[in-house]
Write a protein that binds this DNA or RNA. Structure first.
Lengths: 186, 186, 186, 186
DNA sequence: CATGAATGAGTCTTCATTCAT
DNA sequence: GATGAATGAAGACTCATTCAT
């Protein structure tokens, strides 16, 4: 049971351990304990495999980001939940988090894949921003820029933690979320 | 004179156009219009070539970041200059900017190279943060975290612009710098 | 079945025809009618391939040298059998014989490979010499020198024949063996 | 002084230190402290250079072998002088001795070069054998075979010494010469 | 004469992909 | 479905040779 998943798991592990460019199918199938042919039964090429892993990670993260989120919360509550979820996702699932970050900006990624909105989380962030701007809570800056800004803070800070630059506990998490809120607050 | 530079320029161009992993020496030397042997006369391996390009870019950016900077400015002036310079560097030299961002977090980079402080700009940022925290202008958060935070905003926002997510003119630049200041302001 | 052996055979043929230094994998795999990848499925590098061919040749020769040999023969009978076998091996298997001679003295060979005693034939020669010296049949000279001496005669003479310097039939074989015996006889 | 000789000396040194196949012109000209162009001013190709080094070594050895030799000595005296000289040449000039041995049996050597009789030493050995056979001192075996036999003993034994298999002083030298004489003595 | 930058054919090696079993 | 032997295009790197100065 689960050869397909074994292959994807092994791929993500290898990306995390050795980096995307040094992942070879030979390593993947050795780690996943499957044969050459099996791999190609499930994924028609290496590229497809990588893209599937990315897609799965995006869906996984997308769902995670939407935890505790609902339409009826205040803007600030939405903001806090989305940012907290994003941080926690990075802390709990660093492999997926870093791979998404890396691959999203790689020239190899198909545009359609990069832009797809898993679980509607991108849309949630956008509408939270628009709502905040309408009510005067959030500064009137280009919503995409605003999105990139608060998103970028989280990724940068979590990435810095993951390569061991500094401690990152509850205190730092609060500070980071507050900083990102101040950054865009009216 | 100039073959060495031709090779490095061609390399950086190719990294920008096709991504680090799809840079092959064959493409580089074709673009630089030199022969195989020539490449190896100047760089003992492909790895060395990439590292040299990175180093040169870091030095270039380091010097750029220090423009108009001096010890006697106020904390806020220092902050503004360093952040503005970083943005402008990204806008004027996107190839170097993106490559530095990419390679700095790649598993291929030698640690010594990643951590070297070209032109003292890293140090300038650090001491600006410490000075601001001492005078109560900047929040008391881990200085490395603070550094990563304001650095990350710029990189994220410029990177977003460079892949055409939104317009990015004087207004947006001001907004970004202000946002990054608010993020860490006491 | 037999790709591995095809590759080794082609390698030995090429070494014999063109010399060790002009053996390229391209020639080997063309002669063996296999693809590039196949070669590396069986031998992790060219060096390993050469060493395997050497090892196989040494084992082959080692077994051949021990034909008709047993512990209970007289010293002279042992001597005659070992020397005759060595000559016949050279005549029947010139490719292996010359390659062993060549590679054994090459700086490329790993010491462990050079010194391994395939089929115990080296040991057999040594103990034959020691036994002969104890019974007074063979002169009291350093056993390794003695070994090198009688071994060297055979190799030199067979090698001379193989590059067509003179006829080499039963008569010459007898003369050579007798000469090598007289050389060390008390 | 003598760029040409510097190059040849460096070549022979390198052959001795690293083996014929790992000698590159780059190493030679670095060791000889000359430029690329200089090398090609004196030797039109690498092959020519190697052949010149071989030729020079052969002439050197040829002259050495003829030391103390003259037509009027007895057969045994001639034999002893020629064999002793050959051993001493090996001991005093191992680089040339081993290279000659190696290259003479390499498939790369031009036949004309292999067969040329520097200083007439080959001829001296041949006529010594013929004279000895005529007077009944030496066995009636093919003169070329006989030549190869006594030549081969020396090379094998000296080569064995040079790679440190056993001590080789006056005693062993005498034993070796005597052994080679017994081998062909009537 | 002496030099060394420039060259590219040739070498080993990697790795995604195919296909017969 | 599962397997892995066979493959060859494409990669980095070497090194003898040329030629302008």
């Amino acid at each position: 049971m689960g050869k397909r998943q074994d292959i994807m798991d092994a791929t993500l592990d290898l990306i995390h351990e050795e980096g995307l460019q040094s992942v070879t199918l030979a390593k993947v199938l050795k780690k996943a304990k499957v044969g050459w042919g099996t791999t190609f039964n499930y994924f028609e090429s290496k590229e497809v495999l990588i893209n599937e892993v990315y897609k799965e990670s995006r869906i996984h993260m997308g769902n995670y980001l939407m935890q505790n989120y609902n339409e009826h919360l205040t803007v600030y509550e939405k903001f806090k939940i989305l940012q907290t979820n994003r941080i926690n996702y990075g802390l709990e699932h660093p492999k997926e988090f870093l791979f998404i970050d890396l691959y999203s900006y790689s020239p190899l990624i198909p545009a359609s894949l990069r832009d797809f909105d898993a679980a509607g989380s991108t849309n949630a962030v956008q509408s939270m921003i628009l709502e905040g701007q309408k009510t005067g809570l959030i500064k009137s800056i280009d919503p995409h820029l605003c999105h990139q800004l608060i998103h970028g803070i989280i990724h940068s800070v979590v990435r810095g933690y993951l390569i061991n630059k500094y401690p990152f506990d509850d205190l730092q998490i609060q500070q980071t979320i507050e900083a990102s809120w101040k950054a865009i607050q009216q």
